[in-house]
Design a protein around this nucleic acid. Sequence first.
DNA 1: GCGGAATGATTCAACATCAAACCATCAACG
DNA 2: CGTTGATGGTTTGATGTTGAATCATTCCGC
Lengths: 151, 151
Amino acid sequence: MGTRYRGSPGAVRALNAYVALVRAAESVTARLQPRIDRAGLTVSQFGALEALLHLGPLCQKELGTKLLKSGGNITMVVDNLERRGLARRVRGEDRRFMAVHLAPAGRRLLRRIFPGHVEAIVREMAILSAVEQKKLRVLCRMLGLQERRDA
Amino acid sequence: MGTRYRGSPGAVRALNAYVALVRAAESVTARLQPRIDRAGLTVSQFGALEALLHLGPLCQKELGTKLLKSGGNITMVVDNLERRGLARRVRGEDRRFMAVHLAPAGRRLLRRIFPGHVEAIVREMAILSAVEQKKLRVLCRMLGLQERRDA
DNA sequence: GCGGAATGATTCAACATCAAACCATCAACG
DNA sequence: CGTTGATGGTTTGATGTTGAATCATTCCGC
């Protein structure tokens, strides 16, 4: 995303803000990535385990919503977690639902790597003061929580 | 990324800020996506055309840096753009470099869709005031411009 | 109850992405 | 010059991701 675009000041301002937003998210996430790689997980797998640890068992649909991934993809992510013994599927009372549970090995793995992950995030964000971090959160939440519109 | 994590206030603050940042970027980008889909482009293809339009011809390495994508991937993106007649490769004087040029069809396509894209971004960002947009940009740039560290 | 709509999960084909290995070209140095 | 190292690009193999089609199950109106 170049910055050579010429348009109204309002458009340039919005564009600059958007580009900076996306770059910041990608940049920080890229710096977090090696740590997850080293645990032998993909970002989606890590996200799924993290959601299961902190939210408890979820059905795949819910997992997809949390991770912003398609249903087909969740099937594969859970397949891989199950194959490695990190999670297990339990068919729900409503037999359409598959409740995904964290297996003991998955819980151990996540407990082992999650603290370091949080520390890394803290270090990444430490370039901002506490007040700035809060401000960033407020601004981002306004953008993130908007309703989807006409397209 | 759930928010049920219990840790020190500083850790929770950093985590909340980071999660909000990533969600905002993904959320806004997802709302922009259908517009790009409708033009029959992938996000990377759109990004490449946009870079070429506003920065002029670039070699693939530069393109990769702009788009934060691997070299191998750029080869495929440019392959696909070239196959559709939207871009063309020109071997440079230093024959290692491939200068990627925007083809007339690519220029027409981008000129047709880019203004609407910018308008959509302006609408997305309009939930923030001008001052807030500038503040967001400043905060995000601090995060984005940090040096990569030990890992 | 029954037949169809709705919902969750799975499969499948197409494509994106990456890292590593590889090839081609250039630059530097003896 | 000729070798060696650096640099840009491509290929390859593995995996992730998506959207559409499909299957199984449940829900709902009649």
